[in-house]
Amino acid sequence: MMKYQHIKLLVVDDEPAIVDFLTLGLENEGFQVKTATDGLSALNIVKTYQPHICILDVMMPGMDGYEVCKLMKKVCQISIIMLTAKDEVEYRIKGLCGGADDYMMKPFSFDELLARIQARLRNQFPYLLSDLSIGPFQVDDRRKEIRFNQKVLKLSATEYELLKLFIVNHGIVLSKSTILEKVWGYDFNGEDNIVEVYIRALRDKIGDKEHKMIRTLRSTGYRLDIQ
């Protein structure tokens, strides 16, 4: 399990079942979580709690999510993922133009929400991910070191970036083009089979002879699975 003990989330929704579901799931992932059932309470919490990410419902009694979003952005540096049951494009545009950083439809997958939270952290709070612990892996981004089963792996700079990409996105399929873009950059002009070469090297270094951790998904990409 990835540890996010130092990352603060705020869940704002007037449906108790959704609040309980998200709180349980996010706390199990290691996040600090506070909750609110209306906009005014949420704004009061933000002022003192200063969360990094807010999961904000649009349709609430009194002050709706759009107004809450605008006011939150004035109070602190925060990333807002809006939740809504409305599928029309105009509502998504309204939310994004009002300051929301991402938008999800109800009902939603918790795994997808977690992936979107991770994306927001990478984009807006990358320093919070400098120290990660997930399963047998520990990432120290300041020292550019990755430990596997408590032992520091001997990695090249590129191997480090590739393995870190897998760890941060564990459980998510990464296409070869995505890996090339994130690790080698937009302007890489070499052969794309370099990805396979580096993945083979990583498997050797973590003893993944049967490819049970770094899995190859034919015609799709690669995925890091951690039990």
Rank of each mutant, 00 (worst) to 15 (best):
R142Y: 12
D57R: 01
I78M: 09
S109D: 01
L121G: 11
L113Y: 00
P136V: 00
Q118T: 10
L165M: 10
A100K: 05
T35C: 04
N123A: 15
L71S: 13
L129N: 09
L96Y: 07
F188G: 11
V195K: 05
R200D: 03
Y103V: 05
L43S: 04
V11E: 02
G30K: 04
Q32T: 07
E15T: 13
K154L: 14
C97F: 14
L174W: 04
L224M: 03
I214T: 02
A100V: 03
V152H: 13
A36T: 09
D204G: 05
F188T: 11
Y186G: 10
P126Q: 09
N44T: 11
E210N: 13
A17G: 08
I172F: 06
E181A: 13
G62W: 12
V197F: 15
M82K: 07
R122I: 04
T48P: 07
Q32V: 04
L71V: 15
L153N: 12
I179W: 03
Y198C: 03
C76T: 11
Y186P: 12
D101F: 10
V12A: 01
V33G: 00
Q138V: 08
M63W: 14
D141T: 15
H52A: 04
Q227V: 11
I214G: 05
Y160S: 08
L114E: 03
Y66Q: 01
I226S: 01
K8N: 06
L180N: 13
H170P: 03
F21D: 08
K209S: 09
S219G: 13
R116W: 00
D204P: 05
H52L: 10
I53N: 02
V75C: 14
G135I: 02
S175M: 03
A201W: 10
L24Y: 14
T35Y: 01
N123M: 12
L155Y: 09
K182E: 08
D13G: 05
P16S: 14
I55Q: 05
T35G: 02
Y198D: 02
L10S: 01
F108P: 01
K47H: 07
K182W: 06
K164G: 06
S130D: 13
T35I: 08
Y91A: 10
R116K: 03
P126K: 11
